[in-house]
Amino acid sequence: MADTDAPTTAAASAPPRATRRRVVFGLVLFAITTLLFAAPWAALFAPSAQWPTPVVVVGTAVFAVGYLAFPVLLVRSLGRRHSDRAARVALPLLGVVWIAFAWTLVTHVLRLVLAVAGVENPFRARLVAVLLAVVVVGLAAYGHHVAMRVPPVRRADVVLPRLDPAFDGLTIAVLADTHYGPIDRTRWSQGLVAAVNELRADVVVHVGDIADGTVEQRRGQSTPLGGVEAAHRFYVSGNHEYLSNAQAWMDHMDELGWTSLHNRHRVLERGGARLVFAGTDDITAAHSGEHGHAADLDAALAGVRPEDPVVLLAHQPSEIRKAAAAGVDLQLSGHTHGGQIWPFHLLVRLQQPVVQGLSAHGGRTQLWTSRGAGFWGPPFRVFAPNEISLLTLRSR
């Protein structure tokens, strides 16, 4: 009897997998939060600066409040609660503290240069601290302005050697990563649509990450996309759609008059010439649990003639390897945000082959990676401006 009960008792006493994940997540969040807040605090209020005691006490209190509140607010905003109110505090705080952390590392170089030059403390430490504070405030203010503005137009000519001259000069407006979220950007969305319509593009595409949240949560912000004016409007899902019911977003875009290229293609014709626009689900779709969703390039290109030039919509640039192997002429992607907040682009580059702009892959395939129109999380863009891409296709 004792032998029979032992495994049951052991299983009951073992922590569930979900509990272990929560513990690991909590430890990681604690470590990252401590690092992000401790480094700037040490640079601003280093003992070598010999700041008056009230300055150190007030500054430390401000950091302590942010340090204690940040993980709680972040969990409430990104966890099961999905609290927009918490997100409107946590995400800007994350952006500011990331800027402060990154530029703290940069100021260590200045600190070393000043030390070699013979500049003594406390002047050296105070100079570095003041410069750091000015840089953080300045970059946060400018970065917020850039993130919240209607994006400027970035123009580029793309030569496709297999393109029939009948399509020479065809224009494609590329939208990506609008990320409608906790901050109500309905007016921004209306301005975005107005800017796109001024371009009078032949084709407008949205290559994913429409919003953070469900259709019901972000309907007001996303509905202006129905006002985009073009002969053809194509859309593919991004990874963020698969956090909040991608099929509902596809249905919503269909209702707004967009064609969802859900592992399928459409053919444009001019005087007997053909140009194919194909699209695939985001690569995260296969593990999302949504029935019938998975990136399937073969299905998207099924029935395409070998001589047909193909423009492929795929949210993540990492899909370019498959596109090149399939002989795609041009892939349009987003996802990277150009790094969004410097120097985050260095981490993006570890996962994606390209961060932004036009690049060649193999003998035929080219990739256009948009920096995106919106932002994810922190409402800041530092040295990674948002954009509406306007591509003009050129034949040989």
Rank of each mutant, 00 (worst) to 15 (best):
P7E: 11
P15H: 06
V23R: 12
L27I: 04
A31L: 10
T34I: 03
T34Q: 04
T34P: 00
L35C: 11
A38E: 07
A38H: 03
A42Q: 10
L44Y: 03
P47F: 07
S48T: 14
A49S: 15
W51H: 08
V56N: 09
V57E: 05
A61V: 10
V62I: 14
F70V: 03
L74K: 01
S77L: 04
L78Y: 07
R85T: 14
A86R: 14
L91P: 13
I99S: 05
H108F: 15
H108A: 11
L112G: 02
G118W: 10
F123P: 00
A125Q: 06
V130R: 07
Y142P: 01
V146N: 06
M148F: 08
V150G: 09
P151N: 02
L160D: 05
P161K: 06
R162A: 08
P165G: 08
G169A: 01
L170D: 04
T171R: 15
A173Q: 07
D184Y: 12
T186N: 00
T186I: 00
W188I: 10
L192A: 10
T214A: 09
T223W: 01
P224W: 03
A230Y: 10
G238Y: 12
N245R: 15
Q247V: 15
A248C: 03
M250H: 14
S260P: 15
H262R: 15
R264N: 05
H265R: 12
G272F: 08
V276N: 07
V276T: 13
F277D: 02
G279A: 04
D281K: 00
T284M: 07
S288A: 01
A294M: 05
L297M: 12
D298I: 00
L301I: 12
L313C: 08
S318Y: 02
E319A: 01
R321L: 09
K322H: 07
L332I: 03
H337W: 05
G338D: 02
L346A: 14
L347S: 03
R349S: 15
A360F: 02
R364Q: 15
R371K: 13
P378R: 06
V382W: 15
F383N: 08
P385C: 08
S389I: 03
S389A: 15
